[in-house]
Design a protein around this nucleic acid. Structure first.
Lengths: 311, 311
DNA sequence: GAGATCGTGCAATCATCTTGCATGATCGAT
DNA sequence: ATCGATCATGCAAGATGATTGCACGATCTC
């Protein structure tokens, strides 16, 4: 609704070069260059200046981006008001989230939306947290469920409205015959000397595990890398190490493994947040999805955001 | 910058039918229908409902239009801020106005803009007052100089910012040997029994003359209709009647005619207003043009808006 | 100084929108 | 009630604008 070239400019601003932005947007650098040239012409100002072999945003371009955040938010509010005024508004809501959320939370949200708004459709997109925010901005998704990890937009970012959904506690995954398997709960540092099975470096959960271990005062010895929970479970079953799994992650049966809840202060957990484009809260489909997300979170065995608790 | 389909919807709203809106926009009805269909699809709401053989806007569509006024104004403000941030902003400013303004006021405004902003261009478009507002909304003009006549958007219309520029007093045009020609000023009603030469019915100035005569307490006997000042002057010269001309209108020489200033309370005059899209006041080019317009008004022999005066 | 990376311009290609016409529906007048 | 006029919309063909692929000049790194 608002000129998409503003979004192109925004991506150029965050990525720093036209070429990188083009990659992100699935365009060619030539197309990006052309679009921004046209935008600058329409506005009558210079937006980009050559800077070495890259480009630099002018002051005018930075002001444009800063102010346009508010414009986008205002548009979302208008969209919400308009949708509220139409009793039989149809449309689609697109939910995105990291894998566990996509599996554990979003299906029931989608089902709820379909139930409340029969005219509508709900799509689920599995994506990394950072990618989720890009999807929101590109209007390719309307609601994101992400884990709080460093590098994400802050909760006060004017482009988004974010709120806590759930604290997903972490369990220690050990072989069934492991000394810690009989315990009802353990401190993370009790596993400091174990061999560890982590996700692939660079992944969200790898980072999360490292952070949790660092908080517990040690640095894990990484024996193996497993991208999927299933692989990790198999490796633990084989006695090759221990691992952390979030409570929400459902593990396949058939392995001789045990989940032992972690305790500590605070309890090691993934902080799961919802995020929407600022101003879109009142859109009927999104409002329903947010409510359903909260209910889905409350139904899980994991604790809620305010009072994380377990057994 | 903001989706042009909103403007299409707005024209449909004011004109009442898709076909009429298409005429105004120089589109085919099919194109208008398509655009609004796409807009409704993107928003997920119904915008138009069949109503007889025409269409009716839904409540959602009316809310959309109402709110979008503010969005447009906000965008103009952002545009202004961005342009201010660029010291060498280029661009074009397009000035529109009725014929006399186009001839008497706008050239010096355009010259001033070119002088202050050498990088920029200024275009002048001659258009009727009602048309001027359409040009503003369609972003085909940035500053309009119009006469206050019934049917124009009110001065509080959220889409525009309007202010008085000039009160252009009306003169009575009589043959040089007419009894009133020797007077330094006359009351309009002193010419009540004359034969009158008016502009074509439906034109702005025809309406203005009729209104002035009605205010003076008579209804003029219309002997002839002349669309151009030149034609009117020739008819007066030929002794076929009298006429009203605004002070700003320059008459060609060579006719044996006399302009006699009108007096009265209030002095019969055309109220000339400037109008811009709300929020665009601070755009450098527009700000310069507004200032230059005020100066040009002050330089005229006609009176200013606050203290209309003559001789 | 060589190689790599970057931004931009130009012609060819592709997608999207617009047009023209046909259809179904409604309103007004005879 | 019937005919003609007006209106909105769908579909295929055509036009307009955007994107691509490639080339060039400039810049940075080793």
């Amino acid at each position: 609704m608002i000129d998409s070239r503003l979004h192109v400019l925004r991506v150029v601003a965050t990525r720093g070069t036209v070429t990188a932005a083009a990659r992100d947007l699935s365009y060619t650098p030539s197309a990006v260059s052309h679009q921004l040239r046209g935008l600058a012409r329409d506005l009558g100002v210079t937006l980009l200046e050559p800077d070495g072999r890259g480009v630099r945003l002018t002051a005018a371009a930075r002001i444009l981006l800063e102010r346009s955040d508010e414009l986008y938010a205002r548009w979302e509010e208008i969209h919400a008001e308009v949708a509220e005024a139409d009793p039989e508004a149809s449309g689609a809501v697109r939910l995105c989230g990291f894998s566990t959320a996509a599996a554990a939370l979003l299906p029931s949200v989608a089902a709820r939306v379909r139930l409340v708004h029969p005219q509508s459709t709900a799509r689920i997109i599995e994506a990394d947290p950072a990618e989720c925010f890009d999807l929101l901005l590109a209007e390719q998704a309307d609601l994101a469920v992400v884990i709080a990890v460093p590098g994400l937009p802050s909760t006060t970012d004017p482009r988004f409205e974010q709120e806590s959904v759930l604290d997903d506690p972490l369990d220690l995954l050990v072989p069934a015959d492991h000394p810690l398997a009989a315990r009802s709960s353990v401190l993370l540092r009790e596993a400091a000397d174990e061999s560890w099975i982590l996700d692939r470096p660079g992944s969200t959960f790898h980072q999360l595990t490292q952070t949790a271990c660092a908080t517990a005062g040690f640095s894990p010895f990484v024996a193996h890398e497993a991208a999927e929970w299933e692989t990790g479970a198999a490796l633990v079953d084989a006695g090759l190490g221990v691992s952390l799994v979030p409570r929400l992650a459902r593990l396949p049966g058939g392995y001789r493994i045990t989940r032992v809840p972690l305790r500590g202060d605070p309890t090691p957990a993934r902080h799961i947040r919802s995020s929407i484009r600022r101003g879109s809260r009142r859109q009927p489909l999104i409002a329903t999805a947010l409510t359903a997300l909260g209910e889905a979170a409350r139904r899980t065995t994991a604790g809620g955001p305010a009072a994380p608790s377990y057994g």
